[in-house]
Design a protein around this nucleic acid. Sequence first.
DNA 1: ATTAATGCAAACACTTTGCAATGGA
DNA 2: TCCATTGCAAAGTGTTTGCATTAAT
Lengths: 140, 140
Amino acid sequence: MLKKLQQKGTLPGFKRTPQRLAILEYLDGNTEHPSAEEVYEAVSKTNPSLSFATVYNTLNTLVHAGAILEISLDPERRRYDPNTTLHNHAICIECRRVMDIPATTPVNLPQQMTPAFNVMCCHVEFYGTCASCQSKKRIS
Amino acid sequence: MLKKLQQKGTLPGFKRTPQRLAILEYLDGNTEHPSAEEVYEAVSKTNPSLSFATVYNTLNTLVHAGAILEISLDPERRRYDPNTTLHNHAICIECRRVMDIPATTPVNLPQQMTPAFNVMCCHVEFYGTCASCQSKKRIS
DNA sequence: ATTAATGCAAACACTTTGCAATGGA
DNA sequence: TCCATTGCAAAGTGTTTGCATTAAT
C-alpha cells in the first residue's frame, strides 16, 4: 500500500517530496502504531528540517487516501496504523503498547440489532498485560 | 453505581456538592456517551455557576473511582460512559453517534497469543450506519 | 475545624491554519 | 510555469493546574 505511493503517478496530485518519502519509508511495515510526534522524532533524524506541520499534513493526506488508518485508542494523542487490512489490537494497560492481532473468527452484532444498524466493519480491542509487563511485575 | 454516590458516605472523602449531584443525576442511565462539554452544557442549565474545571474534576474523580468509563472512540474529545458493565459499541460513521450493544458471545484471542498476552477484558467496536442515517441517505 | 471542591484564569498538549518561500511535475 | 508542499509562527481545541474562596463533613 505505502510502497505504491513511493512510486511515481500513483495518486494524482500527490507530490513525492523527500519529507514524504522519508515518512512513507518509516511507516511502511511499522507495527508500533506511532503518534505524529513519534513519526517526527524518527524521521527528523534523517531530515533535520522536517516540521510538525509537514508530518500532520502528510499523515492526514495518507489517511484521506486510505493508505493508513487513524486509531483512537489513546485519548491523549492520535496514533496511526499502516496496516489497513482487517485486524484487531491488544493494548497493554501497563505500558500502553498496542499490538496487532489477526482477525480470526468474525464477530457479529446480536440479531435484534442487525436490521437497525448496518455494520460495515468491526474492531476488537483486547485489554490486558503484555508478556514483558507480566514478567516485570513478577520481579518487583 | 452512580445512584450509590448520590447517597452519603459511599466514597470516603467524596463530598456531595450540588454540582456533583447534578452531574451524577445527568449521567445516571445516560446512554449518549457525552463529552465533558455536553455534560457542561446540560448541567449548567440548572447550575449556571458551574465551571468546566468542576466538570473535568468530577469526571476524572468518577473515572478513578470506577463509577464511569472513559471511552476514546472519538479522537477529538473524550467521551464518558456511565454503563460500567461489559458491553460493546456501535459507532455510526455518518452522525458519529455511539450506541450500546450487549456483549453476547465472548471474543477470544487467537490461541497462539494466549500465553503471551493476559487478556483482562475486551471491547468490540462495530462501525457502520445507524437506522436514521440509512433512511436519510435513501431520501437525499 | 478540617479538608475537599469550586470557579476563575493561566498554562498545557496536541493539532490545524495562514502565508511566503520552495521545489516537484 | 504551475500548483502542491514546506516550514514557521500563530491560532484553535480540549484538558489540566494553581490558587484564593467557599462549603461539606
